[in-house]
């Protein structure tokens, strides 16, 4: 009995600092945020009583001038741009991670470093870099115009295209790293077994490689999609108002628009959408990992 009690005490000691940290820096601010969302906007946009659902009505599009779909469009655009960027990141990261994992061992750290190093630079600076590449009159923009992809003199920036490029560029390392880790400990005998058992190259990937790298892919999606969904800098700089996401909407309420309750409500929606996304991802992962896969 005393052993058990000692273990319990020991556990309390080890768990307490972490629990305290989470309480102070996650639980309390979240409670504060939720509370704020249900208050009214007072002078300078600061939250005041009485309790109100005004913020949520406004988010849903009901303003002084009647209903407008702007905010809903922003939410849908946020989800869509996140999904598109994540899909493109996956398409680029899979071959990259596979390629690096099959290089001689002495080259791999260097190649990984090359993938990671750009993310050590400030996001703003890197986005400005893309602005300079996509601005009107640059070789890239001229080429796009020449191919008829944009109107002459327009440039590729600002645009939704530039935002997607910026998102993909920013988050690529966060997909490559977990996928690389998965590829590095890939059981190649499983791959050979699939080849031996009449699987075509596509089927080998589908049945022997993909299931093994799925945990890495899942981790990568979480690392990419969640921050992409809340992205503020890239959309602000590269979108020029054409591709704003919910992160921009929330930020505006705390800055220019000065409506903290509305910002808090937006943040709540962001968290809710993220949680729904994680749930969908988990269910999808469970299905894909073939837990109870039906033999066709």
């Amino acid at each position: 009995m005393s052993v058990l009690r000692r273990e319990t005490r020991h556990m309390l000691f080890t768990v307490a600092p972490g629990a305290l940290f989470i309480l102070v820096f996650l639980v309390l601010p979240s409670v504060y945020l939720v509370g704020m969302a249900f208050l009214s906007s007072g002078p300078y946009g600061l939250p005041t009583l009485p309790l109100s659902l005004q913020s949520f009505r406004e988010l849903a599009g009901f303003g002084f001038l009647g209903w407008s779909p702007g905010n809903l469009y922003t939410l849908i655009r946020s989800v869509w741009q996140t999904l598109l960027a994540t899909a493109l990141v996956i398409l680029l990261a899979y071959p990259a991670a596979y390629y690096i994992s099959t290089r001689p061992a002495r080259w791999r750290p260097l190649m990984l470093l090359a993938i990671v190093v750009p993310s050590w630079t400030n996001q703003v600076i890197r986005s400005v870099g893309w602005m300079n590449i996509f601005a009107p009159g640059t070789p890239v923009s001229d080429l796009a115009a020449l191919l008829g992809l944009t109107a002459p003199q327009m440039g590729l920036f600002p645009s939704q295209f530039a935002v997607i490029v910026g998102l993909v560029y920013n988050f690529l390392p966060f997909m490559v790293l977990p996928l690389y880790a998965a590829f590095e400990r890939l059981d190649t005998e499983q791959v050979e077994a699939a080849r031996d058992l009449f699987a075509s190259p596509v089927a080998v990937f589908r049945h022997a490689v993909f299931p093994q790298t799925l945990p890495g892919l899942m981790a990568g999606i979480v690392l990419v999609a969640i921050p992409a969904f809340g992205m503020y800098v890239v959309t602000e700089l590269l979108g020029g108002g054409k591709a704003t996401m919910i992160g921009n909407l929330v930020a505006r309420q705390f800055a220019q628009a000065s409506n903290w309750p509305l910002g808090a409500a937006g943040a709540m929606i962001m968290i809710a959408v993220t949680l729904i996304g994680l749930k969908v991802l988990r269910d999808l992962g469970r299905r894909l990992s073939g837990d109870r896969e039906v033999v066709l």
Binding site: E189, Q190, A193, A208, P211, S289, G290
Partner: peptide
């Protein structure tokens, strides 16, 4: 195969 190489997800 020596390590059997069974598919763990099946």
């Amino acid at each position: 195969f020596q390590s059997y190489a069974l598919f763990p997800h099946r």
